[in-house]
Structures are given as C-alpha cells and as structure tokens.
Simulated scan of single mutants.
Amino acid sequence: MRSSLALGVTGFSLIAVTYGLARFSWGLMMPAVSEEIPFSVHLAGILTACSYLSYCMSTAAAPGLVARFGASASACLAALCAAGGLLLLACAVSPLMLAAGLFIAGLSAGVASPAVASAVGDTLPPAQQDPANTAINAGTSAGIMLSVPVLMLLPGGWRAACVLFALLALICLLPARRYLPKDRRVTEKDRLSWRDLVRQRSLLRLGIVAFISGSASAAWWSFGPEILRNYLHLDGRDSSLLWLISGGAGIAGALTGLARRWLSMAQIYRLSQVAMALPLLLLASLNGFSWWLFPAVALGGAGYVTLSGVLLVYGAAATPASAASGVGVAFFMLAAGQVAGSALFGAFYAGLGAGAALLGFAALALAMAAVLPGAHKA
C-alpha cells in the first residue's frame, strides 16, 4: 500500500517546482532579465503568454498521457520539462531564447496537475481526495516563497537561480517514480474522449468560468512586479517582499478542506474571486507605496491558489470516472484565459495605462463571483 503522506509530499513538491519555480518565478525575475535582454512591455506580455500557451497545450494532452502512461511517467515528464525550460532560460541571450525556455517550462505545470490529481483519485479514498488535492495544489505558494530569497540572495542572479530551480526539478524525478501509481486503474471504456467532455454542460460552465478567472489572474501573476516597480515606483527589495507575501499567503489554499467545516465550496469560490480583485483595485488607486499593499497582495495570493484548488475540485467532481479529464478541462481553460489575459493586459497597459487595465481586470474577477463553476456538494 502506498503511503498517503509520501503521495502528498511528492505531489506538493512537484507542484511547487512546476508552478512556483518553472512558471510564476518569471514574473519576479522579468525586471532583472529585461536589464540584460531588453524588451518592451508589449513583448513582455507575449513572452509571458508563451508560458501560458504551452501550459494550455500540455493540459489538453495530459489526460491522454496519464491514461496511456500512468501518473508516475507523466509526473516525471513534467519534472523534465521544468528542468529543460529553466536551463534554457539560464542560457538565454535573446527574447527568442527566453520565449523557448518559457514555453518548455510551461509545459511542466500542465502535465503535473492532472497527473497528481489522477494519483490522488486512484490511491486515496473519496473522503480524503478533496482535502488532499487542495493541500497539494498549495505547493504553488511554496515554490513562489522559495523563489524570492533565491533570486534576491543567490550569487549569479536570475541565471544561477534558474539552474538551481532546474536541479530541484530533477530531484523530483525520484519520488515521482517511486510514490506515484505507474498504471491507470480505469479501463479503456471508462476513459472520456474530448468529444464526450465538451458535451457535458457542467464542464462547459466550468470552462467559461475558468477562462475568465484565468484572464483576471494574469494581471497580477504576469505583471505584478512590473507594476510595483515601474507604475508604483517601488524599489526591487519592496517589490520582492510583496511578491513573497503574495506567494506565501497562497499556502492558505491548503486550508480549504478545513474551511469547508464552516463554509460551502460555493462560498469559498466567491471569496476567492473577491480576494483576487481587491489587490488590483488597490493598485489602480495608488501612485506610490502604501502599507495597505501588504494585506492586499496577501489576499490576492491566497485567493488565486484557493480558486485554482476549488476549480480542481469542481473538475474532478464533474468526471468521477476520470479525475484527470475534469481537472484537465478546468486547468486548460484557466491557462487559456491566462494566455489571453497576459496578451490583453500587456496591450491595455501599453495603450491605456496601468490604472485602467487594473480596473478592467478586477471587474472580471468580481463578475465571476456571481457565477458558480458547477455543482458540488457542500
């Protein structure tokens, strides 16, 4: 029998590496990278969209990979993509190489979530699956928290940090190989095709909500450090501290299972959307440093990680015969929204200014608070 603790730690570590280090560390390192490899704000949006685009593509392919090769092999592939992309970033000398590195690194997260969700569904009893999934999903915050001191203190700057992050990704290969299931437990007839998935009304609603929510989240996670440094004129130290607080607060997503003792999943979902909108509204209203930034970005970080965990739960519940399929749809649409949101926010930021762009994207999150992604038992 596989240890549930070993499964949880393995999944948490893999999510920390693929999301926190391979994806979201880019937002923090982007200002430093642009000093060595110059690019415009508009190009910054395109570069960030490369990561989201590859994440979107790999999320679409992940359920099939998990069904054919098993959770363990898929998780190993995710770790290898994270390591490969980060190493390419470390060697980059042009925006094209940056785009390639971000694209490869972005593939890792799209494979990791369905693989881990499948492992949880195959290994743990139903009563433990929702708490396990939301706790593992909070690994994103652990990765972000680790990235901040490494990028600030490691000799060699962002290039050395990318090499270290790649080594951590490679270390994940061993537990993924050992503790995640190597074979799927569902039969061929139980697997859901994409045609079956798009016919499910619950998944259609979930997909729309995830897409718009992903678009709204891109404002902070793609451009947060850029806005702090070039719009609010904060120094690098304050920007990094706020990014650390935002990422660290996402650990609250691990407490979603505990929160369900007092709140329904629908209430947690609505609170997470409001929490994502508040820091955007505050950023739009400021023209410099404010102590209110600290609680605001903490709310935003907790809101996003909690939201992604809630969407994961809704997705798994929508396709109980194949958890990876429902999770794949939810995260595919979340990623597709982030692709669109990154490109659009970059364009609005350049054309209309940061304030107007932030207000518009905050409105998206607030609008989604009124629309539930599907049916799920409280």
Rank of each mutant, 00 (worst) to 15 (best):
G20W: 01
A161E: 01
A160G: 13
L7K: 02
A82D: 10
S58R: 02
F223W: 01
Y231N: 11
F223L: 04
A275F: 03
A321C: 12
S202E: 15
A369G: 02
R23F: 03
A16Q: 01
K377N: 13
K182C: 12
G301Y: 01
F12L: 14
S215F: 14
C162Q: 13
A6D: 08
Y19E: 10
H376G: 02
F223A: 05
L286H: 11
A296S: 08
A22H: 06
M152S: 10
V209T: 11
I136R: 01
G288E: 15
L312I: 09
S285Y: 14
S240Q: 09
L164H: 04
V297W: 06
S74F: 08
G301V: 02
S118K: 13
P181T: 04
P279V: 04
L311S: 08
Y269M: 02
L307R: 11
S264K: 12
G84Y: 02
G101D: 01
A32R: 14
N287F: 08
S113N: 15
A92M: 03
F332S: 09
N287E: 15
K189Y: 08
L65R: 00
S246F: 01
V33R: 03
L164I: 14
W292A: 15
R199D: 09
G121T: 03
G288R: 13
V327W: 04
C50W: 06
N133Y: 02
G247S: 01
A79G: 06
M97H: 04
E35L: 13
A259E: 10
L364A: 14
G353T: 12
A218K: 14
A356N: 10
F69S: 14
Y19C: 03
